[in-house]
Design a protein around this nucleic acid. Structure first.
Length: 373
RNA sequence: CGGGGAGUGGCGCAGUUGGUAGCGCGCGUCGUUUGGGACGAUGAGGCCGCAGGUUCGAGUCCUGUCUCCCCGACCA
């Protein structure tokens, strides 16, 4: 069906790497990983009125006993339910819970493959605080960590001010500048000023309101966003804590999302070289570190593979097909380094080692390859 | 939801006025090939999206329906 995709072996390998980088990032700012359920009872969502409010986007149906069920498009209600049973005192705060899980959203129009699907993977984190001030410190910390995570997976992102939607006055998005993106942002060519078109007061070529730079308009892909939720959910659902004066107060909340499968697609959008029909993955998420291509079968390639296969991730192509086909497919798979073992390379003294990003190529003795890599 | 386009071997497509369903790639077998998607020979593979209708006869005409893609609207 439209907007629904699975991942084959190469895609899954890349996905897992993205997932792990995100997971480490969340753990490093004291996020605790949990896993919530996808099947949701109507009653929970009626507490905030959202079962009706977002029925357009939430897949909803009746089970065989006539009970209303929904597939979670997001988890504020569920996480608030969990937290109201476990947090009682200011001494339990702050705390952040996150999960990496599938989301279902009945998008009015799925498009551009993994960039906008109806079933996709997301990391969503929710934080809980005693007051706005504590929340804001955390919000800032998560924002900085997000920039760091995106940079680790090879995406340069802009930290963009955006509309707060139904939750609040503001939010922030992490946008990758890319012509295939569906968002439009305005950013300064000198400082970190950036606004989403939905709220922007500037236009292309304006002077930056923060410095003497120039405003540039660009299409972009939103790979993450962070929202203040204030007490919207805690107040509706009775998620309170007792402060140090003994009185009950609403929890102050924030939520923080990263579209994992969308990030995977964004990396391809940015790194795929259309002209040469070639992918070069960032090393941190590449499905393989190295592809070894053996032209004519030779024992040197086989021995090299056996020697290093447990130390680095290698794709070894010893298929009985033409050289051109191996090269063309290796270009599409996009391992950042390539080792070619052939009669020609052996005559020149070893194997040819190519760094795809720089295009640099060198002949390295077979015995040396392992240490060079 | 509004507008546009498309459903025919695994993939990409052609199919004229209604008359034996084709091509390229891929796949099997044999042989020759190996530094940029090789070549020859020979095979296998189709309910023409689905349901009705018109006709002696429908991939083709008519009606209905489902699905996918693109552009909008939408994006909690």
């Amino acid at each position: 069906m439209a907007g629904v995709y699975g991942l084959l072996p190469l895609g899954l390998k890349v996905y897992r790497k993205i997932e792990n980088i995100v997971r480490e990032g969340m753990n490093s700012i004291d996020g605790q990983e949990i896993m919530m359920n996808v099947l949701q009872p109507r009653e929970l969502w009626d507490e905030t009125g959202r079962f009706s409010e977002i029925s357009e986007i939430m897949y909803q149906f009746k089970d065989k006993n006539g009970k209303d069920i929904g597939l979670a498009p997001t988890h504020e209600e569920q996480v608030t339910d969990i937290i109201r049973h476990h947090i009682k005192s200011y001494k339990d705060l702050p705390t952040s819970l996150y999960q990496i899980q599938v989301k279902f959203r009945n998008e009015p129009r799925a498009k551009s493959g993994l960039l906008r699907g109806r079933e996709f993977m997301m990391k969503d984190m929710y934080s809980f605080h005693v007051d706005e001030k504590d929340f804001e410190n955390h919000y800032k910390k998560v924002g900085e960590k997000y920039l760091d995570i995106f940079s680790k997976i090879g995406l340069k992102t802009k930290y963009v001010a955006a509309d707060g939607g139904i939750f609040s006055k503001y939010s922030h998005e992490f946008q990758v500048i890319c012509p295939t993106g569906e968002d439009t942002i305005y950013y300064c060519d000198k400082c970190d000023f950036a606004e989403n078109k939905e709220i922007a007061k500037v236009k292309n070529d304006d002077k930056c309101p923060k410095c003497d730079g120039k405003i540039i308009e660009a299409k972009s892909i939103e790979v993450g966003n962070i929202f203040p939720l204030k007490n919207k959910f805690s107040s509706a659902m009775g998620a309170k804590y007792v402060d140090n004066n003994g009185s009950e107060k609403d929890l102050i909340m924030g939520c923080y999302g990263i579209g994992l499968t969308r990030a995977l697609a964004a990396i391809v959008e940015v790194y795929f070289d259309q002209e040469n029909n070639m992918m070069i993955w960032p090393e941190s998420v590449a499905p393989f570190d190295v592809e070894i291509i053996s032209l004519e079968k030779n024992k040197e390639a086989e021995e090299l593979y056996e020697k290093i296969k447990d130390k680095i991730e290698i794709l070894y192509d010893d298929r009985d097909i033409s050289a051109g086909e191996k090269f063309a497919e290796a270009d599409l798979i996009g391992a950042p380094k390539r080792v070619i073992v052939s009669e020609k390379s052996l005559k020149s003294g070893g194997a040819e080692l190519i760094d795809l990003k720089s295009g640099e190529s060198q002949i390295v003795e077979i015995e040396e390859i392992a240490s060079v890599l």
